[in-house]
Design a protein around this nucleic acid. Sequence first.
DNA 1: GGGCGGGCTGAGAGCGCGCTGAGAGCGGTC
DNA 2: GACCGCTCTCAGCGCGCTCTCAGCCCGCCC
Lengths: 225, 225
Amino acid sequence: MRLLVVEDEVRLAQALRRGLGAEGFVVDLAHDGREGLTRARDGDYDALVLDIMLPGLSGYRICQQLRAEGNWVPVLMLTAKDGEYDEADGLDLGADDYLTKPFSYVVLVARLRALLRRGAPPRPARLSAGDLVLDPATRQVHRGGVEVALTPREFALLEYLMRHTGEAVSKSRLLEHVWDGHFDGDPNVVEVYIGYLRRKIDGPFDRRGVQTVRGAGYRIAADGG
Amino acid sequence: MRLLVVEDEVRLAQALRRGLGAEGFVVDLAHDGREGLTRARDGDYDALVLDIMLPGLSGYRICQQLRAEGNWVPVLMLTAKDGEYDEADGLDLGADDYLTKPFSYVVLVARLRALLRRGAPPRPARLSAGDLVLDPATRQVHRGGVEVALTPREFALLEYLMRHTGEAVSKSRLLEHVWDGHFDGDPNVVEVYIGYLRRKIDGPFDRRGVQTVRGAGYRIAADGG
DNA sequence: GGGCGGGCTGAGAGCGCGCTGAGAGCGGTC
DNA sequence: GACCGCTCTCAGCGCGCTCTCAGCCCGCCC
């Protein structure tokens, strides 16, 4: 899941990038309002975290502008406690949730997950394809009722594929959304991780769950294979 | 916006029809599962509201069946609070949102509007000609309901032809668009690949699907042949 | 009927895509 | 410092896909 964090306090921004990165999110940073708006427009993010007080363009305006353009990406606002603005303003301008600083990191992650789950399209709480079930909230995966333990990267990969069940998802799209957007390493990572996933959810020689679409990427069969 | 409400409690169904009608929706009712499935298939609705407990066929099954047929119309499930089924089961079967009874009418309308704003998941339109169907997103091709496995080149060729269904497409245009723009090899490749395609979608001696237009190229018949 | 040119096809060579095992790097934990 | 788990790189391999080639078929024109 790709996030854009627009926050001008550099130390907070870095901390968020590290922390959310460890949770399996791919995090991009923007440090002022205009940059934030531009990247939000072009970046194909799964959610935005917007500070309100920003140089250049406030978080309010970014959100308002995006909504006016018909962009309904889930937005979580960060508001300063000191009250100059209050939560209702943010929500009026189209934010989906807000947090007052200082906020608990755990709460931030929980709210983000909630946004991603129900936010954009009212998303199913759990994703499933046949007897394969993935729960983004608890980060658990079950195949035929038994739990399968996945590493963060494996989980992110499977989650992205399952959010596009049935579609053939190209390796470049996977690199974009599951790895860092500007990942410049060996694209072979994708193949390697597909291999790991298969061993865990299909067994070594079976590939009903994760299908290869030669020349086009990979696909989760709608019926789980 | 056309809605289909599948609900067996007559009074609730009538109330929904009146209430949603007043909101500007056009509401059709079905009172049991089979009727619901049939109408959902044929009716071209913008969204469905499905009760789970239904005579004939449960809301679960209706949803599951529609999804299996590739119908991704937005579905809002109504679940009874008493817990025999829980929300997650519904979402697992491909519903887009759910409400537990008794529900607030205002919430129902809000959820419906959210669903409709999102629209059906943005599946690129599938291309079809008669019983020949090609889905660019999933990279799958079906002939008369059965899947046909194509290689990347075969797929690209068929996709291009089907994007110009009815037209006679010259070999040079095909070389231009399906092969590399400055392909300088043997133009006979096109004939070879047309041959491969025919064997897979028409059978060895049939060429109703991909027709030869002598001197001008090839054509996909608009009715699939 | 005969000749010609466009279209079709079977065989096969070459190679690039995708898969895998091994292992290095790195950060965290004891 | 030793160990462990996760991520990523690398090199090798096998198969399926792509394309070439040569020969044949068939429609069309004289």
